[in-house]
Each structure stands twice: as C-alpha cells, then as structure tokens.
Computed example of a mutant assay.
Amino acid sequence: MTSDDLLVRRAGEDDGEEIYGLTREFALSFRPERAAFQAAYPALLGNPDALVLVACVDGHVRGYLLGFVHLTLFANGPVAWVEEAMTQHGFRRRGLGRALLEEFETWARSRDAGYIALATRRAPEFYQALKYESAGTYYRKVLKTGDHPA
C-alpha cells in the first residue's frame, strides 16, 4: 500500500457504521451493542477532549482510534490516553496503526499533553517501535456484568 492509498482524518457522522463494524472485531471483553454505540458515537464526536480518528483505504474505514486528553494533578497538567485503537484484520502491518498513533500524538501535543498512555497486552513490538515503553500494570474491575461475556 502506498501512502496515497491511506488517509487518516477525524471521524465524522458518516463513518459510524464502519467504525461500529470494527468495534465488533475489536471487542473481547464486551459485546458492542448498536443502541449504546449510537448514543456514544455522536457524544464522542462532539466532546472537545476526545478525538476519534479513522484510517481510510480506498475510501473505506479500515482502522480507528479513540483517545482523550484530561487534566491530572501529578503530571502538572494534561495527559493523553488511547482508549481504543483497531485496525481491520486484513489491513494490519500496512502502516495504518502507525499513522493513527502519529496523528493522535500531534493532537495530544497541540493540547499540551505531558505524555500518551494506553493499556494493551497486544503488539508490544509495534508500540516499542514507536518509542512507547512499558510503564505499569493495568487493573480493571468490571461494573456492568450484563454487557460482558462470562
């Protein structure tokens, strides 16, 4: 794939259906539900502290990233967090993930974020190649058990 085939941009309302399809491929712990997605997606697009990016190949969304900037006390200001990053199965290892993260980094810098963090157990070599380093252990406690497979 050439860089001419790939376009990374802010997501728009018209991208919702393709992003929803990717969330269904992404989700391991939760099953995305259309009604919840349709409520959350426009709210995220309108949230000035959230950024939804899409990676398009030949006019179709093949990857997306959802991230936030939020204030902290310990870091003397804002930090950025990647909540979701997904590339469609047949489009991995083609530069989409790198392009999404680089665009998110640009946005986070423009918001004066001190650093970017994310939680994943997948693709450590990918993140290390982009100069991300392991910085801790991720803990979670599921509060909505009805949305989560057994």
Score class of each variant (00 low, 15 high):
65 L>H: 00
46 G>H: 07
71 L>P: 00
98 R>Q: 08
116 I>Q: 02
141 K>A: 04
119 A>P: 02
122 R>K: 12
42 P>G: 02
21 G>E: 06
135 A>E: 07
90 G>E: 09
140 R>N: 06
31 R>K: 14
83 E>S: 11
73 L>G: 06
12 G>H: 04
137 T>A: 14
101 L>R: 03
27 A>R: 10
145 T>K: 10
129 A>N: 15
67 G>A: 14
101 L>A: 03
85 A>R: 02
44 L>K: 05
35 A>K: 14
127 Y>T: 10
15 D>N: 06
142 V>W: 15
64 Y>T: 10
38 Q>T: 01
49 D>W: 05
27 A>G: 14
134 S>F: 09
57 V>I: 09
112 D>A: 07
120 T>L: 08
88 Q>E: 14
78 P>L: 13
105 E>T: 14
67 G>M: 12
69 V>C: 11
53 L>K: 00
145 T>Y: 11
68 F>R: 02
58 D>M: 04
69 V>T: 09
139 Y>E: 03
92 R>Y: 00
23 T>W: 12
132 Y>A: 09
22 L>N: 00
46 G>E: 10
75 A>W: 14
50 A>Q: 01
68 F>H: 08
67 G>Y: 02
34 R>K: 10
108 A>G: 09
61 V>F: 04
104 F>H: 04
57 V>K: 12
61 V>R: 01
38 Q>P: 02
141 K>Q: 04
30 F>I: 13
8 V>Q: 05
115 Y>T: 10
48 P>Y: 13
132 Y>T: 08
29 S>W: 15
20 Y>M: 09
142 V>Y: 15
34 R>G: 06
120 T>W: 08
97 G>P: 03
25 E>P: 10
146 G>F: 08
3 S>Y: 07
92 R>L: 04
147 D>W: 06
5 D>G: 12
136 G>W: 02
64 Y>W: 06
108 A>Q: 11
129 A>V: 05
72 T>F: 15
23 T>Q: 09
112 D>M: 07
110 S>M: 05
30 F>D: 15
36 A>L: 12
103 E>F: 00
4 D>V: 08
5 D>A: 15
84 E>Y: 06
128 Q>W: 10
128 Q>A: 15
30 F>C: 11
52 V>H: 00
107 W>M: 02
13 E>C: 12
125 E>T: 08
132 Y>I: 09
49 D>F: 06
4 D>P: 05
110 S>W: 10
94 R>Y: 07
32 P>I: 05
119 A>E: 13
8 V>K: 03
86 M>V: 15
28 L>N: 09
144 K>E: 11
54 V>F: 00
88 Q>T: 06
41 Y>I: 09
